[in-house]
Design a protein around this nucleic acid. Structure first.
Length: 195
DNA sequence: CTAGTGATGTAT
DNA sequence: TACATCACTAGC
């Protein structure tokens, strides 16, 4: 069952980032459906968070999606190479987002291997936001799409996919954010990887 | 450790 | 119109 559309409208982006751990994310790209279990997330807390693209109420062509209200996909190109996927959360006008940083492959591993250029036997590692998006077939065109539709969606964790201990720590790759780089807005499921 | 990548934002 | 920057990854 897809997450309720009201869920994405929640005010507390940090709580949402944590809750998304253990949920399943699905993509249907060019008719190829893949799914993975969300194992690592980061919260970006809107206008007051120096690490956020929307810091200081910045509203640009790129960040418009973040202001459109929870339940949208915010996808942007990082380092000219990687399509990073975020879940927009919060009420309309509040540009909160959760970056999906890592996942465990669940279904259609063959398609993921093809997209990653891996051999048949090789283990698929989605331990990084760029790799996650690449394997799932998420590209810039997905920016702004509705997560209640059928291109990308998230389902609630089932009882038997409930994760073990969750680690809460600082975010990656945001040294430019000054004091806000110390905020404990990153979450991951301990048993899947440690970094 | 370092190079590569190109859209995006900000300043001319 | 120009230029610096970047929520990363692969390969030493």
């Amino acid at each position: 069952m897809k997450l309720d559309s009201d869920f994405y409208l929640g005010e507390n982006v940090v709580e949402i980032a944590k809750y998304l751990l253990g949920c399943s994310i699905f993509t249907n790209t060019n008719g190829l459906v893949c799914s993975a279990l969300i194992a690592e997330t980061e919260a970006y807390a809107g206008v007051s968070d120096r690490a956020s693209h929307a810091w200081g109420k910045r509203l640009t062509p790129r960040t418009t999606t973040m202001y459109e209200g929870g339940g949208k996909a915010y996808v942007y190109l990082c380092y000219g190479v990687h399509n990073l996927f975020n879940v927009v959360t919060g009420p309309k006008g509040i540009p909160h987002a959760v970056l999906i940083r890592g996942a465990i492959p669940l279904t259609n591993l063959k398609t993921m291997r093809n997209r990653l250029g891996l051999d048949d036997q090789k283990k698929i590692n989605l331990n990084g936001p760029g790799k996650f998006s690449k394997a799932m077939g998420i590209v810039l065109n997905h920016n702004g799409i509705d997560l209640n539709e059928n291109a990308i969606w998230i389902e609630k964790a089932s009882i038997d996919s409930m994760p073990g201990p969750i680690i809460q720590t600082t975010r990656i790759g945001i040294d430019y954010a000054g004091e806000d780089a110390k905020l404990p807005y990153r979450f991951y499921i301990d048993e899947y990887w440690r970094k």
